[in-house]
Every structure is written in structure tokens, then in C-alpha cells.
Design a protein around this nucleic acid. Structure first.
Lengths: 203, 203
DNA sequence: TGTACATCAGTGAACGCGCGTTCACTGATGTAC
DNA sequence: TGTACATCAGTGAACGCGCGTTCACTGATGTAC
């Protein structure tokens, strides 16, 4: 072999990291296989030694991106107790930083509407990756059972993703910030102060 | 003139309606100018007698789509009192029907992540269209002042759009329905039962 | 009223371009002997 | 130890394709006289 096994694995990882970043930054259509390889100082032909095609790369990129973000969110909240952790998580997800840097952020908030339109064979893998994402963050959700925490996740995360998307769609920076801070206040109040899914706190 | 002024206006409107529908269905990249014209029984060349280019069409399509949806939502809630109207609106927005038919639904929920990446010259016009959308639906929002109602809109709508996007990304129909019904219950409880933005109900 | 002309929505070939993918090839290194 | 060969990551020309846009042209109808 010309290159060692470790070399190949390392190149593959770099391609994946670049793809995960660029897809989130520019969308999956605006980034070509050649663009990604050029970013690594390689040419497009070699790409097919690492991935079956662009579609396979996209699926792995989404998996990679979601893993990176759930790892980061877990790390940021690792030493905090439950309510603090959730408040911190919401603060991070709905931060100016996250709004300005989709390339390092949640893949669902960056690519959601186009992922929803991919053919079923892709969406299956993507849905699994989203399930793992939820699994990783489940312990940070409010609720007494996994089922309650799961239900909370599935309202909170899509909702926050929608608000982030709205903030990013704005042209006026002040409007973007208002959307973010309004959403932060809302979700912190609704998910940190009291259980969100079950209904018994309404007298 | 070969064709009457009314003819031209009618063709333009049909192009716009088709574009608004197909963009929402397939995304803006997956629909070509030729596709849209073919749908009208026309050829691609004539397109440029009606629009400056695809980008201009996209902007007008988003405006058209948002207007159609706000008109429909206003119509559906026209004869209802405030809390009923809001509950109905949330029920419509987070319905199975809306999930299954992005082509007739909210353009922000269908195209949000790609709209957020368009060049600024587009996003300006799109942001204005989103402002008009909000304006049209403001009276249905909870709150005592327009500012409160506006703040509620800017949490509620992006959040619902995110949940719709999540439901559409799922492959399993039951999971999609659960996401929708969970979101419906949450938003109805949080926005219909009590003021959502101001904080004084927390004793 | 009839005739000549202007208008312009719509046609379809052509443009340059970038895409995803394929493939014959290169050449450094591991392996077999 | 040296030599011949196999491996395969990476190269870059080439493929077919579809895109947005341009443009010379058509031809039905409105307008001027």
C-alpha cells in the first residue's frame, strides 16, 4: 500500500469534517464534491475511494455534525445540576454564536427543510441520527420518565431550531437578536421552571 | 399586441402560483425555470418576458405563498372569538394536512433553512414578506398590545415551523404524528390558556 | 372599411457553466521470495 | 539482504447532463391611416 491504513482513515475523517462544516454553512446543493476535496488539497477523483457518492457523504456528515453538537452541549452542561444544565443548554442553542455559525451548529437547524425533502432512503438514516441526538441529550430534558423527557425534547428542539432559523433569515441584526432573546426567555420559563408536557400544574 | 394585457397578467399569475407551489414542494434548487414553464404548457424562453430571473421569481413566490397561507388562516378563524381562533390556527398549522402538503403550506416551514442562506439582497425582500405575514396574523395572537402580540408571534410561528419541519423529516408516520400532536398540545396550552410572553402569572 | 405596419408574448436553438461520476493511469510503499 | 511484484490512494481528463440566460425569430392581433 502506498499509504498506511491510519492515513486513509485520517483523510476520510478530514473529508467528513469539512463536508459537515461546509454543508451546514452553504447548504448541500451549494457545496460540490470537488469543493470539499479542494479544501483538503486533494482532487475530486479520489473522493470515491472514501465514499460511495455525495449522498452517502451527506448522510455521514449529518451524523457527524449532530454528534459534534450533542457532545459539545453535554460537555458544556456536564458539571451542572438539572435545571441549571437545561437553562445553559437553551442559552447555548439560542445564542448569537450559534445563530452566526451554522457551520459549527445543529445540523437540523441548518439543513432541516432540505433534509425533510431528501428521498426516503436518506431520511431513514437521518432519522436514526436524529434519534441518537435525542438520546444523547435526553438526560438534560425535564420530566420524570424517559418518555416524558422524550416528549419534551421533541417539542423543545424543533422549536428552538425554528427560532434559530427565523433569526438567521432576518437581515436586521437587532431583529435577529430580539427573536433569539424572546425565544430564550420563553423556553427557559416554559421548560426550566415547571414540567412542560404533563398538564397537572394547571389547577 | 398579440395578447391582451389581461392575458399577460393571467399568465404571469399562473407562473407565480406554479412556482410558489413547486418551490415549496421540491425546494428552490430542484425546480428549474423550464419545469415551471412546462407546467403551464409554455417553453422556458418566454419566462423572461414576465420575470427578471429565477431569483426575482423566488422572491415573489415566497411573497405569494405567505399571502395565500395568511389569507387562509384568517379565513378559517374569521368567525371565532380570540382564544378559539388561536386554538384553531395552531390546529391548522400543526395539522397532518399541513405536514403532508408543504406545497400549499407555510413557505417559511417549507423553505426556511435555504431562505436563511440566500444573499442579502433576497433576504431583505423575504424579511419584508415575513413582516407582512406577521402583520396579517397579529390580531390572532395573545397579548394586550401589538408589541406583546408581535413577541408572541415571533416565538410561536418559528417554533411551530420547526416542529412541522421535524415531523416532515421523520420517515415513520406515527412518529411524525406524535411530534405534531405533542406540539399542538404544548402550544395550545402555552399560548391559549394564559399570556405567554409577559411573566406576571408566575406568582 | 380596408391595408400596412408595429408590437411583443412566446419559441427553441445555442451559450457557457458546473455538477456527480467514471476510469485509465501514476507512483510510493508493503509484501513475497 | 536485495529484487520483483501487488496494492491502492490519489490524479485529472472525459462522460453525459441539466441548469439559467440570451437572442434571432414567429405570427397573431392592435393601431394608424
Amino acid at each position: 500500500m502506498r499509504y498506511s491504513v491510519e492515513h486513509k482513515a485520517a483523510v476520510r475523517k478530514r473529508i467528513l469534517d469539512t463536508a459537515a462544516r461546509e454543508f451546514r454553512r452553504k447548504g448541500t446543493n451549494a457545496v460540490s464534491v470537488a469543493d470539499i476535496m479542494r479544501d483538503e488539497g486533494l482532487t475530486h477523483g479520489g473522493f470515491y475511494r472514501h465514499f460511495k457518492g455525495k449522498e452517502a457523504l451527506l448522510i455521514e456528515s449529518v451524523e457527524t455534525a449532530l454528534r459534534q453538537v450533542s457532545d459539545q452541549l453535554r460537555k458544556e452542561t456536564a458539571n451542572l445540576n438539572r435545571p441549571q444544565a437545561l437553562e445553559t443548554l437553551i442559552g447555548f442553542y439560542l445564542s448569537e454564536e450559534h445563530m452566526k455559525h451554522p457551520e459549527r451548529g445543529c445540523a437540523f437547524a441548518a439543513l432541516g427543510t432540505e433534509l425533510a425533502r431528501y428521498p426516503k432512503r436518506c431520511r431513514g438514516a437521518i432519522a436514526l441520527a436524529l434519534d441518537r441526538y435525542r438520546e444523547q441529550l435526553l438526560s438534560l430534558m425535564p420530566g420524570r420518565t424517559d418518555s416524558e423527557r422524550g416528549a419534551n425534547f421533541e417539542v423543545l428542539f424543533p422549536s428552538m431550531a425554528g427560532c434559530l432559523m427565523a433569526a438567521r433569515a432576518q437581515v436586521d441584526a437587532r431583529r435577529s437578536s430580539e427573536i433569539l432573546s424572546g425565544a430564550r426567555a420563553f423556553f427557559i420559563r416554559r421548560f426550566c421552571a415547571e414540567p412542560a408536557v404533563s398538564g397537572q400544574e394547571e389547577a
